[in-house]
Amino acid sequence: MFVTAASFKKTFRRDWRDWITFVLFAGPNLLLFVIFTYYPLIRNFLLSFQEYNPIIDKGEWVGFNNYVDILIQDTQMTRIMQNTLVFTVSVVALILVLGLLTALLLNQKLRFRNGVRSMLFSPAVLAGSAVAVIWLYIFDYRFGLFFQVLKYFGINSPKWLLDPQWAMISLIIVYVWKNLGYATVIYIAGLQAIPADLYEAARVDGAGAWQRFRNVTLPGLSPVTFFLGVTSVLNSFQSFEIINVLTRGGPVNATNVLVYRLYEQGFTEIQNYGRASVVATLLFVIMFILTLIQLRAIERRVSYA
């Protein structure tokens, strides 16, 4: 690629105009990204190698010390990774399956359908911490709503948030309840986008209800499922407010997940920004890899037909 001075000038002049247009259109947006996303990302990465005192805004480079602290010496880390995995897999699976089932149900011509749809969707627009405060009452094992209902059936209420065995289940219930409506609405939209003639053709070919679902509905919904899968996984990794209000990661770290560990290390009285940044970096890497896998491996099976 050899460029003469003259041709360079010419190219540059044309490019110069293109550049102006580009900067005018993309610039403001890009600037926001740089300030609020890329800069913090890089700063966070640098912080993870520092012993940083936020009060005087001074850091000391300490190499991989923080990584050793979090990844090797922290005896609770295995537990936290397990919790994160259990939480993410459970809520994503439940949201996708239950979301699809409710969408199928609400796609029928039922009475009060729209009312039910709005009711189901409403938790999704509520603030997580407000929702969690209400659930604190529902879960109280001595006078809460669940206690009353179980008592009616003669069942002893578990101690929900205070029992390490049940605390994670409680969190999953609240998270799924809150986010189910969103998945349902997206699925309903997906269902309505499947051309009716496909079903007709399937019927003419003698396909039963299950076969129609298996061969028309499911493939037709695959783009929606893919979208919901990616966003649900990413969202579940960031679910903080519900945990902070309901359990604060306890009891005995039973509900401590990565994002809560980040908060604990950085913003409780531990106030260790370096270690918090390690957790943040870890979270970023995991989410990045998962998204890559989803984009590369799973998207191939999605039919956009």
């Binding site: 409780t268 009285e269 106030q271």
Partner: peptide
Amino acid sequence: VPGGDNIIGKGLERIIVG
């Protein structure tokens, strides 16, 4: 101790609940 209250509190949870 930075995080001292938190560290001891979690220990007590391990003793009582765990």
